[in-house]
Design a protein around this nucleic acid. Sequence first.
DNA 1: AGTTACATTTAGATCGTTCTAATCCGGCAG
DNA 2: CTGCCGGATTAGAACGATCTAAATGTAACT
Lengths: 350, 350
Amino acid sequence: MSSHTPINRKVTLNDIAAGCELSRATVSLVLRGSPLVNKHTRARVEEELRLQGYVYNRSAANLRRRTSSSIALVLNDLANPFFAEFAAGVDQTLGEAGFVTLLGCTSESATREQAVLSSLLEHGPGGIILSPAEHSNAHDVLAAVGARSPLLLFNRELGGTLPEFAHWDQLMLDNQHGARLATEHLIARGHQRIAFFGGHRDSSSCSQRHAGYVQAMQAARLPIEPHWRIECAPTRLEAAHQTSALFAGTPTPTAAVCYNDAVALGLMLGLNQRGLRPGQDFALTGFDDIAEAALGMPPLTTLSTAPRERGQQAAKLILQRLQEPQADSRQTIAPVQLVVRESSCAPPTA
Amino acid sequence: MSSHTPINRKVTLNDIAAGCELSRATVSLVLRGSPLVNKHTRARVEEELRLQGYVYNRSAANLRRRTSSSIALVLNDLANPFFAEFAAGVDQTLGEAGFVTLLGCTSESATREQAVLSSLLEHGPGGIILSPAEHSNAHDVLAAVGARSPLLLFNRELGGTLPEFAHWDQLMLDNQHGARLATEHLIARGHQRIAFFGGHRDSSSCSQRHAGYVQAMQAARLPIEPHWRIECAPTRLEAAHQTSALFAGTPTPTAAVCYNDAVALGLMLGLNQRGLRPGQDFALTGFDDIAEAALGMPPLTTLSTAPRERGQQAAKLILQRLQEPQADSRQTIAPVQLVVRESSCAPPTA
DNA sequence: AGTTACATTTAGATCGTTCTAATCCGGCAG
DNA sequence: CTGCCGGATTAGAACGATCTAAATGTAACT
């Protein structure tokens, strides 16, 4: 065993000070690289730190300084690759800024969200990045975090009215514009009967995407049939099950703008089961550009949201907010990019 | 604005004590549900806590009690769905036990791993769950964390010899057994010429899986040709590129046990490009059971590792270790399960 | 020598909690 | 009246850092 391995208790500033016959204060100055301290003593102290295997106790420092070096990251679904990439981006940027990420997953439960938030708050994060659970509302979140903690909402808006005095920041995807791009792309390919498939009507992202779809259809003076809007949970399985609903009424659509990639991949399965070849007999688009999108059969036309970059952006935004707590709240809308692949074919030349 | 919203500074035990004309100590007892305190005063204090919007400062408490309520989770690649699921499982179980997760991503860089570990340690986690970066070694990890912090290694072993006095726990997948199951399954389907495809020879998980493959082949008295082992990075793209190597020598294999799902999916692409239909003209298996495996064309026979359950298990193991720091170190090997799908067809009846 | 200036070091309070060892008080036995 | 018990409360020192204000030492300038 190497001689510097600490045997028993944690070694503190006092131990180092004693070892050098100096005061705590001086050692503390050394740790923080103060120019006040004599370079000879600095060297002595640094040697001792190494020798005793000192590790800085940031909690103690934060307590005294009334600062924080952590950010809470609360996600509705970490298992979703989109949020996993996002989290990786957040952690990377926070880490570079010397902050640490306190993770919390809510599994889409507003109840758990409350519990997770208050548990994380007890550890005194400097700020919070929150991607809300499905039926989370502004009132409860406010009760849990108070109006004092900097909060950045990501991806979804909160239900209920959010009080004006809590100036929370927002980082949202440009859902409406993205869906409009997808729809316009299908129209440019020659489609006239286009459905909007998947998602729940009361989710903010879904209604925004639907709005973009409507916008594009109206701009092209194309009709929208009510039975061309199919709701379903945003999972592959549900989407596959709802496929038949697409063809229940007439006129039948020749293409669909899907709520997201998961839904689109599910729809592909459903189409195959009906003997329709996606990307040949029927066109469709997704949203998110998850890894599987590029590998589908056929590869999926979708909107790239660059989740890792969003994570980095979210981290930067919350760090900025820490710098200027009083600044006006920011509403950021991140652009999305259309990625054209083979699933968005022209309509069959009937 | 509701009247209880705190206006200015953080409210502390002192504020509550003053509000009730009691001492800090009594309030502290109330917080921790001590039976010592009179039930009437308890009610008064709880009212005041609610009124002032008190939030517990766990860092301060941890400082005084010399305890910790956090666990560091250090991952080589959070963007990988396998690890994302794992992280979700860890966080869930830790949360239920009142612990919080300190996240750190290393992006497969041993250098970043060092930085991340020492940064996290400054926040005084009670223990560490580490899925090491690719070329991480025991010596460096020891230097960063010391021998005192409970550490659980997940998924990969560390390079170098790990010192016997640092009793670190391990949670590994049963790679060897899994690969053996896959190989036996192919043999049972009638294959005799089976290759082992993908992965790097120096990765511990790869060599374990290869060993399982060899075991099954030898048990069935089947020959193994040297040119049936193809190495490549565990990504889809690399795997697709290496497909031709499989058919370079004679006799050519009729099936392949792939290092993992990513490699298997890449191989499918490569087979398609050569005009071979995976699951009909050539059989293959994967490892991990990622979400895409079930949706491939054809669906992939693979080994399910239940990453979320592994995360829960890892959390339980590290919490157990916190209870009994002196107990002998545990080496846990998690079972894997063969999931048979269509990619593992019988050989063509030539 | 006395004063000032500067560089370096430090004693001691402090952050918000917990813990130890009292203290206080009403009742009850002797 | 005294002593003791037990329930309820508390003063004050921790925990490991930082910060303020002051102390120390040394050199330079009147």
